[in-house]
């Protein structure tokens, strides 16, 4: 294992020191670990808070700032944060207008946020939780853990964060989050695995020209293992299940988010984005917004995910609204 670290157990704390040095407009705490925008709590604004295992950077801490998350809680690498972190983040972020917790659908995250929410509610704070489960690689069912939350989480955070910034109340923010979750779908693939620092070995092994389709963002195996194919075929393997999962209509306006799992060069990612855009246009969809970059990663994993969000005027308005975070920034 080759990593730029000192001690596997100290990775997250030491990285947070680096974040603090780089971003004076964030307040970074390490014990318990959470990141909150420097001007929090913002009076009268809903606090939008997320979190999850580290190793997916810039998700979530890189999305803290005006127009997006009020605070974020980083767990150890690929391990959910604990309730005390979440409670501390809420205490720092709560501006009196309620708290919305955005949680990726993994058992660990759900259980820790649920435990935290019970404790926070007991303190008299109005807290709501919205679970993001956009990964179509996993078949949903009442009897399983359900679909995973992956890259679509960024879109929920951006859109709800914009509304909260503009003063939307907790009901509105919660409804908006559910609307995005209902309309967003993702699927990813891996060409090469990643290595968790404290594990020291790759999370899976792929042959010389094998790829894993339907990969999760923690190196969990996907739907099937298959042969490497030309980019246009890979893009189709990802988009077809996404298109099959929701009832898309020709003329639907969509946001296409082409995400790198961390180790894929931008030149390949743009190439895939071009290919995906062409395929969607062929299917009669209107690609009205794009996002391309390594935003929801799995350490150095090589691979990509494609995320599709059905847009409405309302969603476009909040997507376009100004945002000012370390990793996502535009407008005003």
């Amino acid at each position: 294992m080759k990593k730029i670290i000192n001690d596997p157990a100290a990775v997250v704390t030491e990285a947070l020191h680096g974040m603090a040095a780089a971003h004076p407009d964030l307040r970074v705490h390490t014990d318990p670990a959470f990141v909150v925008r420097a001007d929090a709590p913002v009076r009268g604004r809903v606090a939008v808070i997320s979190g999850g295992g580290s190793g997916h950077e810039p998700l979530h801490c890189g999305f803290v700032g005006p127009g997006m998350l009020t605070a974020a809680c980083p767990g150890p690498v690929f391990t959910s944060p604990t309730p005390d972190q979440i409670q501390a983040a809420v205490a720092a972020a709560d501006g009196g207008a309620g708290v919305l917790l955005l949680v990726k659908n993994y058992t660990g995250d759900v259980l820790n946020f649920e435990t935290a929410a019970e404790l926070i509610e007991a303190d008299g704070v109005d807290v709501r939780t919205v679970i993001v489960d956009d990964d179509v690689a996993v078949r949903d069912s009442l009897f399983t853990a359900g679909r995973r939350g992956v890259a679509g989480t960024l879109l929920v955070e951006k859109i709800v964060g914009a509304a909260a910034e503009a003063g939307a109340d907790l009901d509105t923010c919660e409804r908006l989050a559910r609307t995005v979750v209902t309309n967003v779908r993702s699927m990813g693939l891996a060409l090469a695995p990643c290595t968790v620092p404290h594990a020291g070995e790759p999370s899976f092994v792929l042959g010389e020209d094998e790829i894993e389709i339907g990969i999760g963002i923690h190196g969990e195996p996907g739907r099937e293992r298959t042969r490497l194919a030309p980019a246009r075929d890979l893009v189709r393997m990802l988009l077809q299940p996404v298109l099959d999962d929701l009832e898309w209509q020709p003329g639907d306006r969509v946001l296409l988010f082409s995400n790198s799992m961390g180790g894929t060069p931008l030149v390949e990612l743009y190439l895939a984005h071009g290919s995906a855009t062409a395929l969607l246009i062929e299917r009669g969809l209107l690609v009205e917004r794009s996002l391309v970059g390594p935003y929801v990663t799995s350490l150095e994993m090589q691979g990509i995910s494609l995320t599709l969000l059905r847009l409405t005027d309302e969603l476009i308005e909040w997507w376009d609204a100004p945002v000012s975070t370390p990793a996502l920034r535009w407008g005003r």
Binding site: P32, G53, G75, P76, T79, S80, P81, T82, P83, D84, Y106, T107, G108, L111, N112, E114, T115
Partner: peptide, 15 residues
């Protein structure tokens, strides 16, 4: 355990 384990196991063993 609840405040240090994280993951699925933390809240489960803690509870």
């Amino acid at each position: 355990l609840i405040s240090t384990v994280g993951g699925a196991a933390g809240p489960l063993y803690g509870t």
